[in-house]
Simulated assay, not measured.
Amino acid sequence: MPKRMSLAEAIASYVHDGDLVYLAGFTHLIPFAAGHEIIRQRKRGLILARATPDLIYDQMVAAGCARRLIFSWAGNPGVGMLHAIRRAVEAGEIEIEEYTHFAMVARLTAGAAGLPFMPMRPSGHDLPQVNPHYREITCPFTGERLMAVPALQPDVAIVHVQRADEEGNAQIWGIIGEQKEAALAARRVIVTAEEIVPSEVIRQDPNRTVIPGFLVTAVCHVPYGAHPSYAQGYYDRDNRFYMEWDAVSRDPERLKAWLEEWVYGVPDRAAYWEKLGPQVHQRVAIRPAWSAPVNYGEVLD
């Protein structure tokens, strides 16, 4: 089976109802396009896991995709609450399982390493009182009391990157979140990329390859796939979108209308980007800022 396919094909093939799905990326390279395709295909009963759920999980919960949310800090960054998630929790429509940021990454790290759990030092927060998955253990070497959290192994992790080749070797620069750990921990990995480049381009700068191709199940060319978050070197964060989302998500009917227009009402990401129009395109436009080249050297003949 070829790895390169459309995003619609990848979601249809590899995201199943009831799956534990992890959309990775910390403020940067959040895979909104993939989340919208999951909504568009009306996937149901998902367990959505993510550090900082951000707007994409607010949208997916509002669309009825989720039955459970595993997360660390749920909010609209710099603005306030995720109102659709809050309504769903208060109405008993979804279950929640909350961790600290470090504990979420520790869970992924354990999953990536094939370990059943990951130990941590107690940090004084009260989450163990409401989350039974925090467990106290005794260090076998020092006798010290530690906290442990179970491994997290998603059925599918979805990662947006700046560039990848057709074999799935995926490169990221700028802020790197938990993308590598999520990919290593997951059973299936979907990569969406701003660019698909020849393998020679990837090999010219191998240290930027955060996710190796052998981990990847599907790779999809999805320009602007992270909007309204940003892709370093491609487009800026759409801060106005985040601010405007607060008003949209406060009103269930307005949110429903937004989903109808901007997700169900467009066939794919290219149509979504075109619909945003030149004013938004200009708002998130950037100018080049090249880093210094690196000399990897080459053996003389």
Rank of each mutant, 00 (worst) to 15 (best):
E95F: 11
M60A: 05
N295C: 02
E178L: 01
E136D: 05
F71R: 01
R203D: 08
L55Q: 12
M81L: 09
Q282G: 15
G225H: 04
N131Y: 10
W258P: 00
E166I: 10
N295Y: 07
P228Y: 08
V159E: 04
G277E: 14
F141V: 13
V191L: 14
P154M: 08
Q59K: 09
G18W: 10
V210M: 07
L215M: 11
D126M: 10
V15H: 00
V61N: 03
S123G: 13
R188N: 06
K43R: 13
P267S: 09
R250K: 13
E167W: 08
A285K: 05
A289I: 09
E178I: 01
P132F: 09
P119L: 02
H101S: 12
F71K: 02
V248W: 00
P228E: 06
S123Y: 14
V149A: 01
P140I: 04
V263Y: 02
I56M: 15
A103D: 12
A34N: 04
E261G: 00
L108A: 07
E178V: 02
A148H: 02
T27S: 15
I85A: 03
Y14Q: 06
R42K: 12
G277L: 07
V89Q: 03
I172C: 03
D268Y: 08
G265W: 02
A157M: 05
R135T: 14
V219Y: 00
P77M: 11
G80P: 03
Y234T: 09
V280T: 08
N76W: 03
K3Y: 11
R4K: 14
